[in-house]
Design a binder for these strands. Structure first.
Length: 584
RNA sequence: GCGCCCGUAGCUCAGCCGGAUAGAGCACUUGAUUCCUAAUCAAGAUGUCGCAGGUUCGAGUCCUGCCGGGCGCGCCA
């Protein structure tokens, strides 16, 4: 049960009853009535704004409405107290019995508590990573990869039919550069002296084995050929090799995709022409000359007539070119075709996860999606800000030559996949993130990964000890759901139950807002409540989780601990992080 | 010059379609360990929510303008 949805329904019923009784006029619009956890614990378990929202349309004073509502709420068995507070809030306090019942419910549900069919099977396309296949992934890419992956996990958990997608930019000039770079390494592998890598080619060592592999496969046949002869073949070979590299890097992070969509295939299949024709038919393409960009160096700029998409008709600042001067498609044109491809595959709910350097691109892509779908599809772009890599507070040099910790693989090898994944989700995607290699592996309160994992490990530890008192079959969540929980009457214990019961609400909020970081914050708060209770048991033997002298109380507390373990494990699973059983 | 994002405690950040006296952690001070992991916990102090207007019962949250920082700005992807 989502407690707040439940209370919201109850409040609506009681308002209807007040209307029927004539205390309020009929036909009130209740859409903005909400029941939420109050910021301050003193304000009770839940606060309702109904009286404030309804005052104007009911033509009554807020407090007067609140008094009536509070009176009715107090009449309900699950309500211990309903108080009018402040300008007209109704603060609700629920009985202990109500909370114990919720804990039982959580345990009876077991793993998967909080998962709902919010999405109703609606298809959602989440596109993330989508880096150019020209080299290994760097730390910056890890953030988008993890955010996209966790968001996809979350949406799938909440009943959306999620497709995880990677757009392979294998058609532009950069992959030609890649092919030339590989050809150079190929000549090297064939025994030619290549000297320093020419300016404009990719110098990285990661291409050395690619050159060797090409030489091993094709021998010396490309040495005497002109570029036009070898470029397509070597380009294909190089892209395949780079995508293998990228996939391996993603695999090291535990990030996966369902679909790898190739830009080149879109072009070859004529999908860009189709998209162009569709926009043209809609009268959204014209030939025109753009204003020169201001504030940027203008020397090379000259007026040029181009095929322009009327992005400005859909909220963009200016219209955007679709063809380069040589007639080739711009990146935007192929990206339009790609998003049209998604829409044609039946997606009306599109999410793109991009890096900060693509921020200026959001409006035009949204404009394109609006134009292509006739406003029936929505695009949400999650821009991931920079990751600042630190080591003990000092910035880590990010130059390729320095070679230290610049690649995603290096960071994963250094601190571990789970740490990278969790830390990447401890900030809103649109805020910059400090990633301190030393701090994230510290075992201390200010390392959120550790703090949450430690709570899980402690829960496991207590359950292991509990197994010495309570027979194994009775330790299963479904069995603990039937335990007598009435001894869980300490405020700290009830606070913990309340926190656990917020989980369904957190998941819904995070899923609707596309904000997985909310889960990280909730897990930290849950861990804090749990650690507090744990330490309290040191002072107050009555609160200890496992006590052989008092099996009934032990059973109740093991139920509580089991619930903590379930929620933390579920949250970590959404993040793709393995919960640890013990930490030594 | 224009666009997007950000600006909340000394530091790093939460703040959920506008809600009550704006919250955590770190750092600082003090305290808790024969007791389930003290790798933890408790107590104390900390604010012109960048600035100025506006919208309304109510603004950190919405609107406008300014200031500061980041990212970007046709024929790169």
């Amino acid at each position: 049960m989502n407690v707040f949805n439940y209370l919201s329904d109850v409040i609506r019923m009681e308002i209807e009853a007040l209307c029927d009784a004539g205390a309020l006029p009929a036909g009130l619009d209740l859409s903005s009535v909400s029941v939420e956890p109050p910021r301050e614990a003193e304000h009770g378990d839940a606060a309702c704004n109904a009286a404030l929202v309804l005052a104007k349309q009911a033509r009554r004073k807020p407090r007067e409405i609140a008094e009536h509502l509070a009176e009715r709420m107090e009449g309900r068995v699950e309500i211990r107290a309903a108080e009018v507070a402040g300008p007209g809030f109704v603060n609700l306090r629920l009985t202990d019995e109500f909370w114990w019942a919720r804990l039982s419910e959580l345990l009876a549900t077991g793993p998967g508590y909080g998962a709902t069919n919010l999405g109703g099977g609606q298809p959602v396309n989440v596109e993330y990573v989508s880096t150019n296949p020209t080299g290994p992934l760097h730390v910056g890419h890890a953030r988008g990869a993890v955010v996209g992956d966790a968001l996809a996990n979350l949406l799938a958990h909440m009943g959306f039919a999620v497709t995880r997608e990677y757009y392979v930019n294998d058609a532009g000039a950069q992959v030609d550069t890649l092919a030339r770079s590989v050809h150079t390494r190929y000549r090297e592998a064939c025994g030619e002296a290549i000297g320093t890598i020419p300016e404009g080619l990719y110098p990285g060592d990661y291409l050395v084995p690619v050159g060797k592999a090409l030489a091993a496969r094709d021998g010396r046949r490309w040495l005497e050929e002109p570029e036009s002869a070898w470029l397509p073949e070597i380009r294909r070979f190089a892209i395949d090799a780079m995508m293998d590299l990228v996939r391996a890097d993603l695999d090291a992070l535990g990030v996966r995709h369902d679909v790898f969509r190739s830009e080149r295939e879109l072009v070859d299949e004529g999908r860009v022409d189709d998209a162009y024709a569709a926009l043209e038919a809609a009268g959204l393409i014209y030939s025109g000359v753009l204003e020169p960009p201001k504030g940027k160096r203008d020397e090379d700029w000259e007026p040029r007539e181009q095929s322009l998409f009327r992005a400005s008709a859909f909220g963009d600042d200016t219209d955007r070119p679709l063809r380069k001067s040589d007639g080739a498609w711009t990146y935007f044109a192929t990206d339009i075709a790609y998003h049209r491809d998604k829409i044609e595959r039946g997606f009306t709910d599109l999410i793109d996860v991009w890096g900060a350097d693509h921020g200026g691109y959001v409006k035009r892509m949204k404009a394109a999606v609006a134009a292509l779908s006739g406003d029936s599809a929505s695009l949400d772009v999650k821009i991931c800000q920079m990751v600042k890599l630190l080591d003990g507070g000092e910035p880590v040099a990010m130059s390729k030559r320095a070679g230290r910790f610049v690649t995603l693989r290096d960071v994963v090898d250094e601190v571990g996949r789970d740490v990278v994944r969790f830390i990447m989700l401890t900030r809103r995607n649109d805020a910059p993130l400090d990633f301190d290699l030393r701090r994230v592996t510290e075992q201390s309160r200010d390392n959120p990964v550790f703090y949450v994992q430690y709570a899980h490990a402690r829960a496991c530890s207590a359950l292991r000890r509990g197994a010495e008192i309570v027979p194994e079959p009775e330790l299963a969540p479904a069995a603990l759901a039937r335990a007598d929980l009435t001894s869980l009457d300490d405020p700290a214990e009830l606070d913990l139950i309340r926190r656990l019961c917020q989980w369904p609400r957190v998941l819904v909020g995070a899923a609707l807002a596309h904000e997985p970081h909310r889960i990280a914050f909730h897990l930290q708060e849950l861990a804090a409540d749990f650690h507090l209770l744990w330490t309290r048991g040191k002072d107050d033997p009555r609160l200890r989780f496992v006590d052989g002298e008092r099996p009934a109380e032990t059973r109740a507390r093991l139920a509580l601990i089991s619930a903590v373990k379930i929620v933390i494990a579920e949250g970590l699973a959404l993040f793709g992080v393995e919960p640890v059983q013990e930490m030594r």
